[in-house]
């Protein structure tokens, strides 16, 4: 079992708060609407519990995943309800495209939105801990929450740290989610990074 001290837990939430704020700012510029953020929640759990715990099994999700490796590794996932993704793409591209054109561009557009948001978040973490991450190309996955989260981990019995946040495109009541999955070696790498963040002098 992994235990975080109060300081570590607080610093971890702070790091993700700042970084997801950066991602939300990018999303706001993409869709031209205000984004309302919740406070991130951190939970250790078995991989196969994650989707159920998050209540994401009852809806179809459009997810964009990207793997990042650096001082720790994580599979980052951006999720939106699949039936709202076309609306997000329309907000991104404007009103001048027909529904057929938007449908044709939907997956590519969601991939680019995921790429920008996930990189804004992880890039911001890299800057906060004075480090760097490499990433894979973004990949779009469709399915329920369990489909998305289950394929992201090596084994359903793996302990994962799920850092989860939901955010709202306020005027449209569109709720999105970001999750960061880490296995035990990566969690240890993350904790070392958090300790360095706590110990670093303020600039």
């Amino acid at each position: 079992m992994i235990n975080l001290s109060e300081d570590q837990s607080d610093a971890l939430v702070e790091i993700f708060n700042i970084s997801i704020g950066r991602a939300a700012s990018a999303l706001s510029r993409i869709v031209g609407e205000k984004i309302v953020l919740a406070v991130p929640s951190l939970q250790f759990m078995q991989a196969n519990e994650a989707a159920e715990r998050l209540g994401l099994n009852t809806q179809r999700i459009c997810g964009v995943t990207q793997e990042f490796s650096g001082p720790f590794s994580t599979e980052a996932i951006l999720m939106f309800p699949e039936d709202r993704s076309l609306e997000i793409v329309r907000m991104m591209l404007g009103e001048s495209y027909s529904m057929d054109e938007l449908s044709e561009l939907e997956q590519e557009a969601m991939s680019e939105i995921g790429n920008i948001l996930l990189n804004a978040c992880i890039g911001s973490i890299a800057n906060l801990i004075s480090s760097r991450f490499d990433s894979t190309m973004p990949e779009v996955r469709l399915g329920n929450g369990d489909d998305l989260l289950r394929v992201s981990v090596r084994s359903a019995d793996d302990t994962v740290l799920l850092i989860f946040i939901d955010f709202n495109i306020a005027a449209r009541t569109i709720q999105g989610y970001m999750a960061f999955l880490m296995d035990v070696p990566s969690i240890n790498g993350l904790i070392e990074s958090v300790d360095r963040f706590i110990a670093a002098p303020s600039a």
Binding site: A26, N119, G123, S124, A126, S135
Partner: peptide, 26 residues
């Protein structure tokens, strides 16, 4: 012109004497 906003990328851009602008495209 990238969503990769890491300081390290900005430093590499400066080293290569190229500009850096953050995505999204607006």
């Amino acid at each position: 012109l990238s969503g990769n906003i890491q300081d390290d990328m900005r430093a590499q851009a400066a080293q290569l004497a190229v500009g850096f602008v953050e995505k999204p495209i607006t």
